[in-house]
């Protein structure tokens, strides 16, 4: 298909450069502020990629993805803070338990399909959000969330000076998630995922069990999301109910659609841009330039979701394929001109 043969060599230079950036003298990435912003952005890029595996590659419109992200985060912080497990065992346990949870929820909700599946996953995720935000069982500390106990994790993850370590871990997580997703989508199971998205009946007629492959995709995406949740816990220093809310899943949907579903790099770029944009747009809303505009216009403009939502509607209606779709469209034009 359309592959640019320079993309891999360029990435081979760009990614190590990105890794080295915090050490290379005085550049924007040598400041902890931007390192923190980018660490969060990389994690959202990775999370968007796991969502793309579900939505773009397998065609499952799940509204419950945030549940697994938050489950990894909360299980890890509970295990670590309550001295149940050493931190690295806690990470493994959090991912393992979330995987089991994903198998259970996946097998129940995959009995439905299409739009009903979206509603059912939404309901499950909302139950999770309620359990967390209402402090059910007295474990989650409700709306305040739980701060990670700094004494129980290695000191290289703590403090402003060590922000670059978090930057590296996040970038590393993104690279690992990218490679796993690449491997899964290019594998023979990945071909079945794509076939399920395009025509489920035909897959069933060929003698394959659609339910099993859907569950496989669901569980792989969920366990990667839970690992990203654990890393997010390290980066943000605490677990909070907002990570479990359906707003996170809707944001993931926006990232994937804006970046372009079905392409891996589109989802990653979409996630990174969305994450940076929503923090930047928030800063913009406090800027003085908006004060001279009447409130009827400036009010909505100061809400990041206004611009992102409009952009989203535009992309869904007029530019399906998003950013990466536009790029391939352009390339097709260039190639056919030659």
């Amino acid at each position: 298909m359309l592959r640019w043969r320079y993309s891999r060599p360029l990435l081979a230079i760009f990614i190590p450069l990105l890794f080295a950036a915090p050490l290379l003298g005085n550049n924007p990435l040598s400041h902890p502020g931007l390192q923190q912003t980018m660490a969060v952005a990389f994690l959202y890029g990775a999370l968007a990629l796991t969502y793309d595996l579900l939505f773009g590659f397998t065609g499952l419109l799940s509204f419950g993805h945030a549940l697994f992200f938050a489950s990894g985060m909360y299980l890890a912080v509970l295990f670590i803070n309550h001295d149940v497990l050493v931190w690295w065992l806690a990470v493994i346990a959090a991912v393992a338990i979330t995987t089991i949870l994903a198998i259970l929820i996946g097998s129940a909700s995959l009995r439905t399909g299409g739009i009903t599946f979206a509603m059912v996953t939404l309901a499950f995720a909302e139950a999770g959000h309620v359990i967390i935000s209402r402090n059910f069982g007295g474990l989650t500390n409700g709306e305040n969330g739980i701060a990670l106990n700094a004494d129980k994790v290695p000191s290289i993850f703590i403090g402003v000076f060590n922000t670059k370590n978090l930057f590296w871990i996040s970038l590393g997580t993104l690279v690992i998630v990218y490679f796993i997703t690449w491997w899964v989508t290019e594998s023979s199971a990945g071909r079945v995922f794509a076939a399920l998205r395009d025509n489920e009946t035909r897959v069933a007629v060929l003698g394959l069990k659609p339910a099993r492959f859907k569950l496989l995709s669901f569980v792989i995406a969920a366990s990667m999301a839970s690992f990203i949740g654990v890393v997010m816990l390290m980066v943000s220093g605490s677990a909070a109910p907002r990570f479990a809310s359906s707003d996170v899943t809707i944001a993931l949907l926006l990232m994937v659609i804006l970046g372009g579903a079905i392409t891996r790099w589109g989802a990653v770029i979409g996630g990174i841009i969305y994450s940076v944009a929503s923090t930047r747009l928030q800063d913009l809303s406090q800027s003085s330039a908006l004060h001279s505009v009447p409130k009827i216009i400036s009010g909505p403009l100061s809400e990041p979701t206004f611009i992102l939502g409009l952009l989203f509607i535009f992309v869904v209606m007029f530019a399906p394929g998003g950013l990466s779709g536009a790029y391939y469209h352009l390339r097709l034009k260039v190639i056919s001109k030659k």
Binding site: I115, A118, G299, P300, E303, T305, F306, G309, F312
Partner: peptide, 23 residues
């Protein structure tokens, strides 16, 4: 285009929420 319809209503919900919150 059922999935796109669902997606576009998500966008509308976001925009309406943002407009009302802004006002």
């Amino acid at each position: 285009r059922h999935i796109d319809q669902a997606l576009v209503t998500v966008g509308i919900a976001l925009v309406v929420g943002a407009v009302l919150a802004g006002w």
